[in-house]
Amino acid sequence: MKNFKYFRPKNLDELLAIKNELKEEARLLAGGSNLLVYIKEGSLKSGTLVDIGSLAALKGIREKDGYLEIGAAETIIDIMASPVVSEKLPFLRESLRVFANPLIRNISTVAGNIAEGSPIADTAPLLLVLNSEVVAASITGRRNIPIDDFFISLGKTEIKANEVIITIRIPIPETGRGKFVKLGLRKGTSCSVVSVAVWLIANGRGVEDIRIALGGVAPLPLRAVKTEALFRGKILNEHNIGELALEVTNEITPITDVRGGAAYRSEVSAALLSKAVRECLGMEE
């Protein structure tokens, strides 16, 4: 028997108070595209549905101190439509075009996408290569969590039971170019088999710096730091991009599931990484 309550906090204080009181029993509801599936499937049977979807304190997309700050309740579509995002970080807007499908983009949020600690959250590799921060709040205060520390284990994040994500902060890059590529079983509405995000700072074809992150190939969204180190300082050409990209298969641990085998995921990871790097360099459009 399902037994849910509904609560819509009027301000941030009310939200933090109920989260502190109910802890995990307070189920935050923004877009609902995860939560309502759990209720429908019966894996979640009780709790208080805390509606933060229209909470003004969690809205807003702005530039502040060199960071892009995105309120936790901002929808994917509003982020894509934001003039600030278009001007300061078009990479984010372009990457979100492959998020779920147009209907889900109208309701889902970035905070909700990463809050579950899912290895296939499409925004996770983006936030990782952008060195983002997650701002968490509780009744005792706020703290900024570097995205590298955010994902703890499968389904678990750094967010404590009395905390809520209030803002995503992304440092606006001064140089470089990014590319996000995702392989799903279909074009729309499909979970990623593998996704790869790259942020590349290059001088011609020489790699000054590179950040690589992958989804769907480990229990967590992953920064491929060893592969990054191999790329750094190299002059890239038609041949060595593929060879370097292949190195990524040594630091991922993909599984076999309904969407693909482990060996397939490994091959695809290298191919997508190669493609992403080439696109950053304008070798492939």
Partner: peptide, 27 residues
């Protein structure tokens, strides 16, 4: 599907198409 995958239940809310199975009436 009732799980936000198929779009059959799409309605327009404040000008935007959304799957009505992924929205609470109380929202």
């Amino acid at each position: 599907c009732s799980k936000g995958d198929c779009g059959a239940c799409t309605v327009i809310i404040d000008g935007r198409p959304v799957p009505s199975c992924m929205t609470l009436a109380l929202q």
